[in-house]
Design a protein around this nucleic acid. Structure first.
Lengths: 193, 193
DNA sequence: GTCTATATTTGGATAGAC
DNA sequence: GTCTATCCAAATATAGAC
C-alpha cells in the first residue's frame, strides 16, 4: 500500500476533478483515502496545506516531464498533444486538479500552472523556431485539457453525435495538421503564412 | 439602474469567474448587486435557481451569437477567435461563469456548454467543409477561453515576459496561420495534409 | 500515526415585518 | 419587492485518547 500521504493527495486530486472544489470535503477525502479526518489532518495541518501539497506535487511532476522532453519537433508535438488528452497519467491528473484550484482563486495554483505552460511553450519554441506554432500548440493543448476538465466522466456525445474530447483517429488527424504547419524540415507538410 | 434581477445575475457571474464557485456566496452576491440576502432570495428562490438563471441567460446569448454568425470561413474564424479572447462581452462573461458551474459538477451547465460548442463547431464546419480545421478551431478557442478563465484579473506576465493570453498582434498571427489551413478558396494560404 | 469526539464558523434558507 | 432576524446544515479545525 502506498503511503497515507500519497493516498490522501490522490484522493483529493480525483475529487477536485470530479466534484469540484466545493465537493472535495475533508470528510470525503479521508474516506476515499482510507483514513479518518483526524488522520488526514495529521499529515496536512489544514485544507490550505493540503492544496499546497497538491500544487507542489504538480511542480515536481512537471519538472520531470520537461526533463524528459523529446528532442525533435515532430516527436515533441506528438508527445504534447497525446499527453494533453491522456487524463490517466499522474501529471495530467495533477494538472487538472490544480486547474480547479486556480479557478477557485488560489494564486499559487495559477502561478504553478503558468510556470508549467511557459516551460512547455519554450520547449516547443526551441524545437520549432516558430513562436506562432508554439502558441498554437499551447492553445490546442489547453483546449484539450479544458475539455477533459469540463466533461464529466463517461459523458455521452450529444444526440447528434457531437463529442467534446477528440479521441483516436481524430486526434491523429489534428496532430498531422499541426505538423503540416512546420517549416520544410518537417516530416509531412508544406508551410503556410 | 438596470433591474435587480439582472444586477444579481451580473454579480454572480463576475464572482464565479473571479472567486470561483466557493467564493460566490449569497451574502457577497447580494452586497455586490446592492440588495439584501432576503431581496436576492425573492428573485431566485435558492442558489440552485440562481445558477439555472445564469445558464438560461448563456443559452439565450449563445443563440443570438449563432443567429448573427458570419457567412464566410475567413470572417467566421476571425469572429470566433476574437470573440474567444474578449472576456468583456456579455456572452464571454456568461460562458466563463457557466464553465465554473460545469466544473463544479452541474450537469445542466455542462449540457449548455456542449450545445453551444456543438453549434459553433457545426457553423465552422459548414463554412470550411473541413472537420479537422473545425475541430482545431474549437480547440484553439477553448484554449483561449481556458486561459482567460484561469488568469486572475490584471495578472502580470512572468519575469521572463511570458503571458498566458495571446493578445494584439500575436492573436492576429494566430488567426492568419489558422486561415492558412483552409482549402484553396481561402484568402491567404496553401493547404496541408 | 491514527482515531473519536467536540468546538467554531460559514453559508443556505425561512419567517415575517415593512 | 426588499429588509432583518433567526434557524439549520455542513465543513473546517481542535483536543485529547489510544
Amino acid at each position: 500500500m502506498t503511503s497515507a500521504r500519497e493516498r490522501i493527495l490522490d484522493a483529493y486530486e480525483r475529487q477536485l476533478v470530479e466534484l469540484g472544489e466545493r465537493g472535495s470535503t475533508l470528510d470525503a477525502i479521508a474516506v476515499e483515502a482510507g483514513v479518518s479526518k483526524g488522520g488526514l489532518l495529521y499529515h496536512f495541518k489544514s485544507k490550505d496545506d493540503l492544496a499546497s501539497g497538491l500544487i507542489a506535487r504538480l511542480t515536481e511532476r512537471g519538472a520531470a516531464d520537461l526533463a524528459g522532453f523529446p528532442d525533435t519537433a515532430e516527436k515533441a508535438i506528438h508527445h504534447f498533444i497525446v499527453a494533453a488528452s491522456d487524463v490517466d497519467d499522474p501529471l495530467g491528473a495533477s494538472y487538472l486538479a490544480t486547474q480547479v484550484l486556480a479557478r477557485a482563486g488560489r494564486a499559487d495554483a495559477f502561478a504553478a500552472l503558468q510556470d508549467l505552460e511557459e516551460g512547455w511553450y519554450r520547449a516547443i519554441l526551441e524545437l520549432t523556431g516558430d513562436p506562432v506554432v508554439a502558441r498554437l500548440m499551447q492553445l490546442v493543448s489547453d483546449g484539450i485539457y479544458y475539455n477533459a476538465a469540463v466533461v464529466p466522466e463517461g459523458s455521452p456525445p450529444t444526440a447528434s453525435g457531437f463529442t467534446l474530447v477528440p479521441l483516436g483517429e481524430e486526434r491523429e488527424a489534428i496532430i498531422a495538421r499541426l505538423l503540416s504547419l512546420l517549416p520544410p524540415a518537417g516530416a509531412s507538410g508544406q508551410r503556410g503564412q
